[in-house]
Amino acid sequence: MDFIYYLDILPYILQGMKTTLIVFSLTIVFSLPLAILLASLTTINSMILNKVISTYTWIFRGTPLLLQLYFGMYGLPAFGITLNRLNVAILIFTLNYGAYFTEIIRGSILSISEGQMEVSKTLGFNKFQTYFYIVIPQALKRSLQSISNEVITLIKDTALVAAVALNDLLRNAKEIVSRDYRIEAFIIVGLLYVLMSYVVVKISKRVELKYAYYR
């Protein structure tokens, strides 16, 4: 074991991990509220709104994330929108994951019984209050499993940001491997990905357990 070598490459790998974690966490922070909002909007039965939202989820779920990143990088400037590469990555990841989360949460909202909404109405809740206090909390709980699966996928998908020339975990490792002709960097990042997945699994298990008191 060549500890000096590990110490030598680790800072560069961790620097990549920082980018990975930024993209990962900001994607979650932005895409979940977006999805909750869009999923709720689909239930007010406006034809135009439904069309717009379903077109959005269809496009973003129906095309490769990599293509979407390329489009964000090279296509947006053609429309006069110029963002730095990190912001492009966060925007595209948010839209992509927002589309998946929207469909998951929409399904859960539809599975909440009509009775819950009716009883709320008889108690005097307005529509917004019924959604905010009654429907969405229950729908999120029902979505937990599917959302945590997507979050684990997101960890691995972050490696795609290399496509917009961002130095993430995997890209930095690859640079080291190409430079040194040694594969230890890959092993280290493999372990780091597994570690991140492990943390997500642990957290989601804990959250699931916390809300296991009702179905």
């Binding site: 009716e118 009883v119 108690l123 009654i134 229950q138 179905r215």
Partner: peptide, 13 residues
Amino acid sequence: VGMVFQKYELYPH
């Protein structure tokens, strides 16, 4: 007026 539904419809969360 208030109503008690046949299935009660309590808030499970």
